[in-house]
Structures are given as C-alpha cells and as structure tokens.
Write a protein that binds this DNA or RNA. Structure first.
Lengths: 335, 335
DNA sequence: TCCGCATGCGACGGCTTGTGACGCATTCAT
DNA sequence: ATGAATGCGTCACAAGCCGTCGCATGCGGA
C-alpha cells in the first residue's frame, strides 16, 4: 500500500480542495486525508499544498494565522482520463440544448466542463476555438421561451436538504403575492418540468406534499433537523396521482390511430411515437399511424399543433375530445 | 521547474492514457511527455506506468513485445477539483433530459461524467445511491418520441472531419431507399434539430450544401484530404435561407398579440415568450399578451397546440393563417 | 493584559525511492 | 538470420520526502 502512496495522496489532496466560493483550511484538508486513510503529519500537508500550488493553479487566502485553499472560480478542470474530442463535441451540443432547459445558475455549475470541452476542440482542430461555434446549432421545437432564474444559494441548499434529508426553511413568494412567506419544509423530491424546478416537500410528515417552484424562492437555509421519515413515498405514483404535472391521464397506454400527411409521416419515421409504431399508406394519399402511447395532456397539445396534418381516428374518445377542442378554436376565429 | 516535476509529470502521463477503444503504447506515451516538455527516459515511463496502474485503475494489453495502455471503458473519472454535490445533482438532471434529445451513442460518451455524478451523490447523502433516482424526474413537453440511433463510429468520424476540415466518405442510405450509396463530402456544419443530427456538407466546394441525417449513415471513414475552403459560409444565414429546418420566416421579429386564458397566462408568466413580454387583463376574463418573437413555423405549431386557449390577434396575417389552419382541421372532424 | 493554543514555516538528519545506465531476453520485420 | 525495438531486472547515486524540533505570529478566553 505504501508503495505508491505519494501520487495517490497528492492526488486526493488536489481533489479535496474546493472551488472558490468554498475554501478549506490546511487543517481541514489534513483531516480529509486522514479520513481517507492517509496518515500524514500536518507538516507534510503544508508542504504539499505549498509546492503543488505552484505547478497546478490553485491559491490560498490568509486569514489571521490560517491559510484557506481553493481553486479559482473559473478554473477549468483537470480530468483523468482527459476528455476526448468526440466527447467534447457532445458536451458542446449538450450545452446548447441545456441552455433552453436549465436555469442559468444550474448551467453555471457545469461551466467548467463546457469550458474544457471548448479547450479540447480548440486544440484538436489546430485552428482556434473561435471558429467552432459557427459550426454548430441546436434547434428545438417551439419558440425559445425564457427560463426562469433560480438563485445559486437556493440551489445549493436544495441539494443539501434533499440528499441529507434535512429540514429546510425557505422564503417563498406565492404566485401573485408580492411578499414572501417563510416555510419550514421537508424536501422529498425534485421535478423539473419544462425548465421549471419544482421542489416537492411536506410539512413534517404530513401528507400530501406541496410544490414549490424554486424560482419563486427568495432565500433558503438548511436547518439542523432531520426530515421525518415518510413510509414509502413513491414519486412516480405521486406524479400520476396529481394533475399538477399534467402527466399520464390513465395508467394504461392507449392504442392511438392517426391519419397523417406525408410531412408528418416523414417526421414520425425518424422519431417514432413508440417502439411498436406502425405506418401504412391509405387510399386517400395520407398515411395511417398506429402506436401505443400514454394518454397525456401533452399528447393532446402535440397532436393539436399539427392542425389538419394529423387526424385522430382512435380512440373514439380522444377523437371527440380533439374535435371539440378544434371546434372551440374555430369558433374564436369565425367572426 | 524541476522542483515538483514528479507530480505534474505523472499527472500528465495519466491524462495521456486514452479510454478503452483507444490504446497507447509505452513509446507513444513517452513521446507525448517529451512533447510537453518532460525529458524522461523510456525506463522511467515504464516504471511510472507500472506502479501507477496498481493504485489507479488502468490496465494494459500485451501485443507481441509492446504494451498498450488504456483506461477501462466504464471507468469513471478522476476530476480535479472534485465534482461538488450541487454540480452532481445538475448532471443527473441533465442526463435525464438529454436522454430525450441525444442519440444513445452520444450519451454514452458522457456516461463517465454521469457516473461520477451518481458517485458523488451517493457518497454525500450517506445513504446509498439507489435511493436517489427515486427522487428526481424530468418531464418534457409532448409525447416521449424515440431518438434515432447514430452509430459510434459515424460520430467519431464526423468529429474528426468537422474539426480537422477533412473530406470524409460516408455510406448513406437515402430515405426510402434500401441500399446505401457512397458519398465523398466536405463537412461544413452540424445541426441538431429535435434530436436528429444533420451533417451539412458539400461536394467539394460546390454550393449549395446537402443535408445528411446521420442516423441514416451506415458507415463513415475519414480521407486524407483537406476540405476545399469555402469563402464565408455563414451557418445562421444558411439556416435562414433554407426551409428544411423550419427556422425563422422573415428576418425581423414580429409584434405578437395574443388573447389567452388564465391557464396560459400562468404558464407564460413563468416562461416568457420574450424578454419584453407584457401581460394585461381584458374585459372578457382573458388576458392580452404582447411580445416580439421570431415568426417561425415552430411558433405556429406551439400556438396551435393550445387550441381555443390562445387566440392570435396580431399580426393580422398570422391570425388569418392560424384561422385557416384551424378551419382545415375543423373540416376533418366535421363528418 | 497575559497566557494558552493553533497555525505556519525554516531547518536538519535519516532514509525511502525515483532516476539513469547497463545488460539481457524476447519478438518482429527485413 | 540479423538487427532494431521493447520490456524488465539490477545497481549505485542522489534527490527529495518525511517526521521532528523550535520559533514566530495571531487569536481568543480568563
């Protein structure tokens, strides 16, 4: 074990140094090493920290007599094994996409990864990175709606509360209300719906849970108090049981039958509704699509978006529903 | 410089070892070190590789007399500074989301990052990771359409060709055709549209470019031939000019005015159509929304999806267009 | 204000261990 | 068959790591 201790120990030390908003004292870092089985004197840690800091790029802050160590906030990352170009490419695509999905504060946490990805791409192409973003676009569906902001602090506290099963106190501004109210809640789950972070939490062990849209939280702090156990909280079942998330209507998938135009057919051949989707031509120049899908309100929204390009044949109930919705819309424009 | 050479050198060595499908001989690794300014004898590299391999987890393959080193394919990653729990949480969310967006082969490249994220979460919560995925869901819009597969090999070659500006030869199966044809093309850009990878490429310097949906490529290889320069290929302008991607119709944003229901208003207050969006109540119990947005076919699709919940007031042209579409759909269900 | 305590750091001796050099065995290509 | 390349055992030397001691400094409690 002591054979190649040095490398591993210095390695572990480097990993233990946090990124800037955080700091760690020399003593603290030594404790972490002890905790991981490295028996070192404080002196050695001091020496390691001092010498390694010159070759790698981290720094320290002096406060009184103690030094606090940290990586610069915008420091990229040294990953082993190094990121490969294909992976870097994928990261770039992911970044472009996640921009439309995650709040800025969450994206910022991934920034170091995106940064190294750009670095790798810049290097491998030989040319400088500046030309790369000109070559990639990610296009989504629908207009590019803005993503509401979640505060850094709230995000960090959320994570602690959720993982550590701790009670947390949040200042939450209910929709429409100007002033925030204070809640002490036990976080149970996190649901991200269309770019909005919903914290699902209970007051103590009291069901049912409440939903907190995190961009409406103005402040949050963690309390030193464990969340009471909740026997068998099943997130999936809960999501199904609540209409708030617009999720499945009914538990069983339905057998959908559509009549679609050539354009929609082409699209569905690329991105199938389900794995058992079947497509066949019909006499009227359109196509019949059959697939088993969950019946959600999102499905209705998706179907409606195509207007006359999609006609719902079965189930009859869904057909009637869509027909009624379209009739309602038609009435609006009749004048 | 030679002060703490050891740590940095071993570090660089570790980074130089590629992940499994790739391998690197001892000689090769030594060359890379030399290239980065470390003057070491082959013997030292051998020793380092041997001793470090036991403490870190990589292995080697013997082929004849030479050893080839590599990290196991499913090896997580050792990143410095270590991933923090909040970041890990965000990675988990990103993974859930990207599942619906990126082809499996691309996602697999990010797998090591997701894996370490899970590791961090499992550790920090004290409890084992197994309970974590029960606590997070990402819900998107629309039915969960399947994402077409892109082959690993194709992805890797694409990256080389695009970044290295090399000509590549692909076996491409046109839509509807059973047999693949061979194309020698110069890759120009990559567009990901709704989960589908489109390679935009030209035959030589000949405009206009063609689009290749990468999941229809059965094989690809890189040729040792540079792509001819294309003076000023502007991807944005190109996307605008081509209808294939359904992107902006017209260059200027339009002043959209809608009449929406309470439900839509709530949604738009969370996720605004634009930064200058304004909402006001009207006499009829609905709400007026005004915003400047790009006029795209995606916008039409989005508007239609809400049926009678959204009425387009202005621009008049768009109102007429939507009205006509709805009338068409209405006719389908009239029988 | 004074004393105890914690932290950083310079210095020193012992000794682990990294390092280059040499030589031999093995494999592959010409 | 021969030479080049590679891996690896060995050895002597020296670099540098390590624990220890001692001193200086800053903070907090009595």
């Amino acid at each position: 074990m002591s054979a190649n201790d040095l490398a591993l120990r210095q390695w572990t030390l480097l990993r233990s140094i946090p990124r800037y908003p955080q700091r760690a004292s020399t003593r603290e870092l030594r404790d972490r090493l002890l905790q991981q089985g490295f028996e070192v004197t404080p002196r050695s840690v001091q020496r390691d920290l001092a010498t390694l800091s010159t070759t790698f790029g981290y720094t320290s802050e002096e406060e009184g007599r103690t030094l606090f160590w940290f990586w610069p906030k915008d420091f990229g990352l040294l990953d082993v094994p190094g990121m490969e170009p294909v992976t870097a490419l994928t990261f770039t695509l992911a970044e472009a996409h996640l921009n439309q999905i995650l709040p800025a504060s969450a994206l910022q946490l991934l920034a170091p990864y995106f940064k190294t990805a750009r670095g790798v791409l810049g290097q491998s192409s030989g040319s400088r990175y500046s030309r790369w973003p000109e070559r990639v676009r990610v296009l989504g569906r629908g207009p590019g709606l803005t993503v509401p902001q979640v505060q850094h602090k709230v995000l960090a506290v959320l994570e602690q509360g959720l993982l550590g099963e701790r009670v947390l106190r949040i200042h939450y501004c209910r929709r429409g209300e100007a002033k925030a109210s204070v809640h002490e809640i036990s976080p149970r789950a996190l649901v991200v719906k269309d770019g909005i972070y919903y914290l699902i939490a209970t007051y103590g062990a009291q069901m049912p849970p409440y939903h907190f849209a995190l961009h409406r939280a103005t402040a949050a702090e963690i309390l030193d108090q464990s969340s009471p156990k909740l026997p068998e909280f099943d997130l999936d079942r809960y999501i199904r049981s609540v209409r708030a998330f617009d999720w499945p209507i009914g538990r069983q998938p339905i057998s959908l039958m559509l009549s679609v135009t050539e354009g929609v057919r082409v699209h569905l051949e690329e991105r199938a509704l389900s794995s058992d989707q079947r497509i066949s031509a019909t006499d009227d120049g359109r196509y019949r699509v059959e697939a088993s899908v969950m019946s959600t309100s999102e499905l209705r929204w998706w179907l409606l978006g195509y207007g006359p390009e999609i006609e719902v044949i079965r189930p009859i109930a869904l057909r009637r529903e869509i027909a009624a919705t379209i009739a309602g819309a038609h009435a609006l424009y009749r004048c």
